[in-house]
Design a protein around this nucleic acid. Structure first.
Length: 258
DNA sequence: AACCATATCAACCGCACGTTA
DNA sequence: GTAACGTGCGGTTGATATGGT
């Protein structure tokens, strides 16, 4: 279900991401943040456009991103929010911790839209006359403050349910409930080490990131001087290349087995 | 087994908006 | 005021998986 990798006329790679590219992007961002998406691929050693990198990070590599395994509560919440706000997927995504707008959109088109249609069909059968349009995409309600409050309370309740479900990521105690859901890209830069990372990122050593970041940020040129993929190996406590070799060996072994 | 239709989802594309020079 | 640039959003596409005949 992935696009065949190809290169455009400018040598920019398109299509499916390889594990190697993922590793490069993830480790670069976790170390230096995404200071400029356009320039980032060059310094991260990737032959990709910035947009592609951003998308890959946001929808796939970013810590705490949950994929698949939608619960009924999540489905209900999406349907409710869609009813309120229409196709505002980014907005809806802020109410579902760990879910991306892209994935919610996909889930809507592949599962929920059908579910709504079925529901509407059933209600039409039962009531003979129904006021709801079966397949109109936009249901933006005129929002009074009282309605919003009710919805917000519902959402909070849903979020609490979702965070306690087995598929939810482990959120640190300091983040529970009171902390706004991270949507701003700035906030993705360096997450507390107690947050569980994906298996791939576990190859690296999370706690050292924050330390390096704090040290480097203190320098005057931190945000103006880009870091390159090559420079990454120069930090004493950064054993990325060892980890990378190990990772690639693992991949080679895997392909031998399969 | 072979073929076709449909479902799924990662990724691309174009546009709008905010910021900066 | 405005042009250039960077980012984010929503719609769409395309390759693969799955199910049905």
């Amino acid at each position: 279900m992935v696009r065949t990798p190809s290169f455009d006329e400018n040598g920019i790679k398109k299509g499916a991401w390889s594990p190697e590219e993922d590793l490069k992007l993830e480790s670069y961002i976790r170390r230096y943040g995404h200071w400029n998406w356009r320039e980032l691929p060059k310094f991260a050693g990737l032959k990709r456009c910035g947009k592609s990198c951003r998308l890959r990070w946001m929808n796939y590599l970013r810590p705490n991103v949950r994929r698949g395994n939608y619960t009924k509560e999540e489905g209900d919440l999406i349907m409710e929010l869609h009813k309120q706000h229409g196709n505002k997927w980014a907005m809806i995504a802020t109410r579902l911790p760990g879910r991306t707008d892209n994935e919610i959109k996909n889930h809507w088109h592949t599962h929920l839209k059908k579910r709504r249609r079925d529901k509407s069909y059933t209600s039409i059968e039962k009531n003979t006359v129904s006021t709801s349009s079966v397949d109109s995409e936009i249901h933006v309600s005129s929002s009074s403050s009282s309605t919003n409050q009710t919805v917000d309370q519902d959402c909070l309740q849903h979020i609490q349910i979702l965070e306690s479900c087995p598929f939810s990521p482990q959120i640190s105690s300091t983040q529970n409930n009171t902390t706004p859901i991270m949507t701003s890209s700035q906030e993705d830069y360096f997450l507390p080490p107690e947050i569980e990372f994906s298996a791939l990122s576990d190859l690296l050593d999370p706690p050292s990131d924050a330390t390096i970041y704090t040290e480097l940020e203190g320098t005057d040129d931190f945000w103006t001087t880009p870091f390159s993929w090559e420079e990454m190996s120069s930090y004493d406590n950064f054993n990325f290349f060892d980890e990378y070799d190990e990772f690639m060996q693992g991949l080679a072994m895997e392909s031998l087995i399969n």
